[in-house]
Every structure is written in C-alpha cells, then in structure tokens.
C-alpha cells in the first residue's frame, strides 16, 4: 500500500463501532432489550442507562445494540441475493452479448426506473408486511444495479488480449469466466457491494419505520423511531440515538466504498 487509505480505514472504524456491539448483543446486553419497566420510563442518559430509556422504561443502549441484528442481517442477505442473481445475468449479457444482452438490458432499465420503495410496497400488498418482504424487495432492487456493473466489466474485459489468449489455448467459457474475467472484476463488485449495503441499510430502516419490516417485540432501529416519534419533544434522546446508529453504519460503508474505489485506481 503506497499511501494510507484514510477513507477506507475511517469507514472500517465507523462500521465497527456499530457492528461489534451488534455482534456482542447476540450474547450479552447490559439490560434485557425487550423487558418493560414502566416506572422507569423516559430516564435521560445516565451512567446506568447510557442512552436513557424509552416510553416503556426499556434500556435504549441495549435496544440499539440488539436493533442492529435484523437491520444488518436483512440488508446483507438482500445485497447478497441481488449481487448473485444480478451478477449472473450481467455476466451472461456482457459475455454473450447481442439478443440476450438487449433483452436483459431492456428489463433492467424498466426495473431501474422503479424506485425501490415502490417495489417494496408492491411486495407488501402481495406478501404482507414482514422481514421476508423487505428482504425480497431490496434484493430485487439490487439485481439491475449489479447486472449493469457486471455487464459493463465483462464487456470491457472480454475484449482484452488475455481472454483471447485463454480462448486460443482452448479454455472453456466457464474457465475463462471464473478464472480469468471474474477476478479482474472483483474490485468494482466490492465497491458496489459496499455502496449497495449502505443504501440497503437506509432502505431497511425506512421500511421498518413505516411499519412494513421488522415487527415488534424484536427491536429494530427504524421501528424504534416510529414508536418514539410522538415523544420526541419530551425525550429527544429516544429519537437521537437510534438514528445515530443508522447514520454511523451507513457512513462507515459509504467510506469503505470510497476507499476501495480509490485503491482500485
């Protein structure tokens, strides 16, 4: 590494600030994130309750730790599915070209014109609200994104001499794609995956805020903001901290994407 990549490492740092407590919350939280103690409601931040308590007297710090489990998990699964399907379709379009390419790109354009939130509401109307619906909607929204980027990379790489050389020595399509082209596209796919993950986290939070995603009693950042909305004036900390968790992790992955992009050049 010639220079220190500041965005990358700052991004890793911010993301870790949220990821590590979330992982820890699988085994340990200071308080039970779902136990209600009404006599304890709206405690401001203190040495006992670091982020204060909510309208049911639940410890906000514990809830924010646990709230990341579903948000981070659903977003990761959605991006992975979108990347897998979009990657395969994009590779096929870019590698084989012609008719297949035109057909797939026309479909991708149509889907791309669709804001992901519209797609999510269409999914809610058919499947009903819930985590699976949100996962499916974010995954579908990511398919054209990865399709376009894989296609562009495959078209560009497909013209390179090393591909011609591999074909000349009789390598199969499968071998050329997996052993030669794919490793050369990895950087761009990593950049996109990181940026898509940040966007997916925002989308998941928005949908949970609308009450369409994670359902109670399981805590989630978006849902928490929905529930405390009426109390923002009385207990501002209940609004501030869950939003900060979302912003911090999104900032982290955006910076990682920036850092990888710089590193790739």
């Amino acid at each position: 590494m010639p220079r220190k990549n500041l965005p990358l490492w700052l991004g890793v740092f911010f993301a870790a600030l949220v990821l590590i407590p979330t992982i820890v919350s699988l085994f340990y939280t200071p308080f039970d994130p779902v136990a209600m103690r009404i006599e304890n409601q709206f405690q401001p931040p203190s040495s006992v309750h670091w982020f204060g308590t909510d309208q049911y007297g639940r410890d906000l710090f514990s809830r924010i730790m646990a709230g990341g489990q579903r948000s981070l998990g659903i977003s990761a699964a959605a991006v992975a599915v979108g990347m897998f399907i979009g990657g395969i379709l994009g590779a096929a379009a870019g590698y084989y070209g012609k008719r297949l390419d035109q057909l797939l790109m026309r479909l991708a354009e149509a889907f791309h014109a669709f804001p992901s939130i519209l797609l999510a509401l269409l999914a809610v109307a058919i499947l009903g609200p819930g985590e699976a619906t949100v996962l499916a909607a974010i995954a579908i929204a990511n398919i054209p994104v990865f399709m376009k980027i894989t296609r562009a990379n495959f078209m560009q790489q497909g013209k390179q001499e090393y591909v011609l050389a591999a074909r000349a020595i009789g390598a199969s399509d499968w071998r050329i794609v997996t052993r030669h082209i794919l490793p050369n596209c990895m950087r761009m796919i990593q950049v996109q995956a990181s940026a898509s993950y940040a966007a997916a986290l925002l989308a998941e939070a928005s949908l949970s805020y609308l009450g369409l995603g994670v359902q109670p009693p399981q805590p989630s950042w978006g849902r928490m903001l929905r529930e405390v909305q009426a109390f923002g004036g009385l207990a501002p900390w209940t609004v501030i901290f869950p939003g900060m968790a979302i912003a911090l992790v999104v900032l982290g992955f955006n910076l990682v994407a920036d850092g990888l992009r710089v590193k790739g050049k």
Partner: peptide, 23 residues
C-alpha cells in the same frame, strides 16, 4: 457531504420537527 449522505431523511425530519416546531 459524507455525513449528509449517511443521514436517513426520515430521521432528519424527526430532528427538524423537534428543533423548529417543538422547541
């Protein structure tokens, strides 16, 4: 701008209500 891009707009909305409407 890096911070701005990371802000969920609905959270920003809640904060703006808190500041300009409630306070």
């Amino acid at each position: 701008t890096q911070f701005g891009m990371a802000l969920p707009s609905f959270w920003l909305g809640l904060l703006l209500i808190n500041l300009f409407a409630l306070r």
